[in-house]
Nucleic acid binder design. Structure first.
Lengths: 149, 149
DNA sequence: CGATAACTGCAAGTAAGTTGCAGTTAAGCC
DNA sequence: GGCTTAACTGCAACTTACTTGCAGTTATCG
């Protein structure tokens, strides 16, 4: 099992705590997936996750089910970067992926970078005036990166 | 910020002209699909399109192929509103869907409204500084509308 | 330790979107 | 109008992301 715990702010114990606090069982599989998401430099697809596990692989249905649980419990957020599958990234107060942000994806090489800043409050204020509540927004960028230009 | 409802600005002859100008054959099927997209109040999914045709139905593969041609020729734009399928709306200089805009979708009833205004130039400037060219952005809102609140 | 609920692997199933092929239709030229 | 060719269409089979039912396993908690 290859889990890169380099600069990750999540270790096995913290992962287990997160699971317990979310009412999920602290199984080996759930911990593994959570750590993999935590140490990833970019949002991962479900295929990324179960291919990464290699020998100790688990079934893709398990990954899908686990990810959906994480999503329901607010441990991960789902994003779509214009590919034909979704990606997931961890939400953890101690983690750099946790705060609200967006992404740029290179349409050539597929490389994904984080965009830290986001102020769409003027938009949301105006939409609120139309009677909408509980606004959420979804914003992603694509472009051609400097390597591919 | 303005939300408009749509009135179709496309009739059969204009549709045929659009097809010819795009280098596509003026077939009954292509005209029909173009008119249906033109008169739609919200972006349509491919399933919407071929179910709407009813008796005069055509194969879903035809709709997919046609929509892809329209997309390549710049006649329609593809959008994803957080559902598990794409939607398409017409781009026509005479048509109010033609200019760049976004949408709010009610997470309860699924109703979709247009958002006219969009100024993300500060974001795009910032990203340009990272070396990205040919920026595109994708922005959609969801919320709970006044009827469903 | 034992009961129960949550979890997992497997295989089979959905549904969006694609593709190969053979028959049909539109475009262009005479 | 008729002819040729390329574009188009319907059908069926396929691909792929994601889901589901079931039976066996594992975690939790008393």
């Amino acid at each position: 099992m290859k889990i890169k715990c380099c600069d990750s702010s999540l270790d096995e114990n913290k992962a287990k705590d997160l699971l317990s606090n979310s009412g999920l069982n602290r199984t080996k599989m759930k911990v593994t997936i959570l750590l993999e998401l935590s140490s990833a430099k970019t949002p991962l697809s479900v295929a990324d996750i179960y291919q990464e596990l290699g020998d100790e692989s688990c079934d893709k249905s398990t990954v899908f089910r686990t990810i959906n649980q994480f999503k329901e419990k607010g441990l991960v957020r789902e994003i779509n970067l214009g590919e034909d599958f979704n990606r997931y990234e961890i939400i953890n107060p101690d983690h750099e992926h946790s705060h609200h942000h967006h992404h740029v994806r290179c349409r050539e090489c597929g490389d994904i970078k984080l965009i830290e800043k986001c102020d769409l409050s003027p938009f949301e204020k105006m939409i609120s005036k139309l009677g909408y509540k509980k606004m959420e927004h979804y914003l992603e960028f694509t472009g051609i990166c400097s390597k591919c230009a």
